[in-house]
Write a protein that binds this DNA or RNA. Structure first.
Lengths: 219, 219
DNA sequence: TCAGTTGCTGACCGGCGGTCAGCGTCCGAC
DNA sequence: GTCGGACGCTGACCGCCGGTCAGCAACTGA
């Protein structure tokens, strides 16, 4: 029985070696420019061997993104668990999410690599199911914080929680995209922005917009 | 002298034929999947002939995007010129921009194709200069409307106009990205959104946030 | 030791953006 | 009308890339 287990363990270890190599190459070159040949070299296997472990470049990509998302959700769960009003929790979620994206812009850019591409990810794969579940979890945490805010009186009740969470999530996404691509933005638009203030003061703006008037709140 | 002019005219006409063909293919397939071979077929020339008119696929891309941007700026200029308070003008700009993006989502997706890619666009080409100027113009129109709002009392004065225009611009961008890619979003996150309300009610949210209290405003 | 299983390699495939020698057509001078 | 040079275009070719798989080496258990 020992041989089968060892082999299984070795396969898993090799798989992780390949994932780590792919992540390094994706992060440094970008997904589109990264080549399977270079990933293979970094992993110290042949290019053909990559396909013994992963069906395609796309599956490699999705595996790496899912790994990052797991880490993000852990952080968001932790942020959501800390005490405070619903509004405070929501603000903390926004800051945590933005912090995660921008502490390593390359990772974030890899994560949104599906934009404008035609990666054919199969809906029915367990991996895609996990990926999707993680994304949904991030949205659910925001909705829950907003709902709590409605109950404790820190958030206005007139707006739909899901719609709000989606709008502000998408808005924050736009800001993260812009900031993660600041070099390209700087090449396209001359501006005098203080990048380090951008997201913080935007979170202030929107939390001001959804705060219940007359409630003491941390601004 | 007549022969040189005719030839120049024919070259220009052929150039436009190629641009139109490329636009059709980019719109239907996406930039990455579109092939020069297919563009050549649509334009009824050989693939090699494309390179007599455009240096690369990237230049073809940038030419098409710049064409769209010209149209967008015309619309924004018109929206900015209509009467109203600064806040009303700004709202109209936001709605016009979103309307342009979403009336043809394919066109918008092509326009943001630079995200996460390594298109090596030369900073010094006249084409890039024009493209950049157009982008800057869209930002400048927003800043001007906000400034007008500060002067006529419809917008709060406590926030920096450029920062605000950039934040809300980026936020709107995020919403447009999400909505233009709604099929991919639907595959990733189960939600009960009413897509047609999403941007309109977001514009209401942010304009409420920046409106000067106590001023009658169109909500 | 040996047959069967497992794991891996690298040559190969077709698709793609880009290149350019070679050819056909046009044009103006004679 | 003829001819040489200029111009415009073509399509075969190139190297790069993701993906494939026949063939080989190493491992395993009887």
């Amino acid at each position: 029985m020992g041989v089968a287990e060892r082999r299984q363990r070795e396969r898993e270890e090799r798989r992780v070696v390949i994932l780590d190599a792919a992540e390094r190459v994706f992060l440094s070159k970008g997904v589109a420019v990264a080549t399977m040949e270079e990933i293979a070299q970094q992993a110290e296997v042949s290019k053909g061997a990559l396909y013994l472990y992963f069906k395609s470049k796309d599956e490699l990509y999705l595996s790496i993104v899912t790994r990052s998302l797991r880490e993000l959700v852990v952080r968001l769960e932790r942020a959501a668990a800390a005490p405070g009003s619903g509004l405070e929790r929501y603000r903390r979620l926004l800051h945590t999410h933005a912090g995660f994206a921008l502490e390593e812009p390359d990772r974030f850019r890899v994560g949104i690599g599906w934009l404008n591409t035609n990666y054919s990810v199969t809906d029915d794969s367990p991996l895609f199911g996990e990926y999707r579940g993680l994304l949904e979890r991030t949205l659910a945490l925001s909705v829950a914080a907003i709902e709590q805010g409605k109950q404790d009186g820190s958030v206005v009740t007139s707006l739909d929680s899901l719609e709000l969470a989606t709008q502000i999530g998408a808005a924050l996404f736009g800001l993260m995209v812009i900031q993660a691509n600041r070099l390209e933005v700087d090449r396209r638009v001359r501006h005098g922005l203080q990048w380090e203030r951008l997201i913080g003061s935007f979170v202030d703006l929107v939390s001001g917009a959804i705060a219940q008037p007359g409630r003491a709140r941390t601004a």
